[in-house]
Design a protein around this nucleic acid. Structure first.
Length: 201
DNA sequence: CAAGAGATCATCT
DNA sequence: GATGATCTCTTGA
């Protein structure tokens, strides 16, 4: 192997997401989120995620049942669940597990890689949080219910051959879910140890 | 540096 | 009518 070794940019398909939510959340670390805007691409490496594991998880929006907001989580794996929070930010999730089982992974932070310069700044905080990464990649409710595994997806996830070793992955409790009773402290947040693009909270 | 408050609206009661 | 899977700004030690 030399430094010209082939880059394999393999788009993740439905089978990747149609698995245990914790495994998907962990395995998404090191994958690349790609956002197509017109002819341009913005992309970044996923460095932080959280798992929302099902209807019994009191932090998962779907624990309140199937509503117009949560119905996308009951759909096929690989769907995007985008919602607005605190009246001004969006959060990006990808639906996991089998159809009719509501679960998803929140993508919390990215290390912007592609087209960093076009953003006009190289600030490492550009996508270091769920609201900020949506703002930077221009993700809003128009993408809610779209699919990351559709042929013409404008937002999808790529494997570029990077594998994060288990020893570099930190498990921690999720952020901002203190209302979730005994679920609030479960170690369902995953991030890359020592990575400065991880959110501060 | 840490702690606190305000912004602002979709969603559910 | 209350609240939230957040972020930024202000205050003060």
């Amino acid at each position: 192997m030399n430094d010209k070794c082939e880059m394999v940019n393999q788009r993740l398909g439905r089978s990747f997401f149609e698995r245990d939510t914790k495994a998907v959340a962990r395995d998404l670390l090191g994958k690349f989120l790609v956002r197509k805007i017109g002819k341009n691409n913005l992309a970044g490496r996923i460095v932080e995620t959280e798992a929302y594991v099902g209807p019994h998880d009191l932090a998962c929006h779907a624990s309140k049942g199937k509503t117009s907001r949560t119905k996308v989580m009951f759909g096929s794996a690989g769907g995007w669940y985008v919602y607005m929070i605190y009246g001004m930010y969006h959060c990006l999730n990808i639906v996991t597990e089998s159809k009719n089982y509501p679960a998803a992974v929140l993508i919390r932070a990215l290390e912007i890689t592609d087209a960093f310069d076009r953003l006009g700044t190289r600030d490492f905080r550009l996508a270091s949080g769920p609201g900020k990464l949506c703002r930077t990649l221009k993700i809003d409710k128009k993408l809610n219910c779209a699919s990351a595994v559709a042929k013409n997806a404008k937002l999808y996830i790529e494997d570029r051959g990077i594998k994060i070793p288990q020893s570099k992955i930190v498990k921690a409790k999720r952020i901002g879910v203190d209302y979730a009773g005994k679920w609030k402290n479960k170690p369902l947040r995953f991030y890359i140890k020592g990575n400065k693009f991880v959110s501060k909270a």
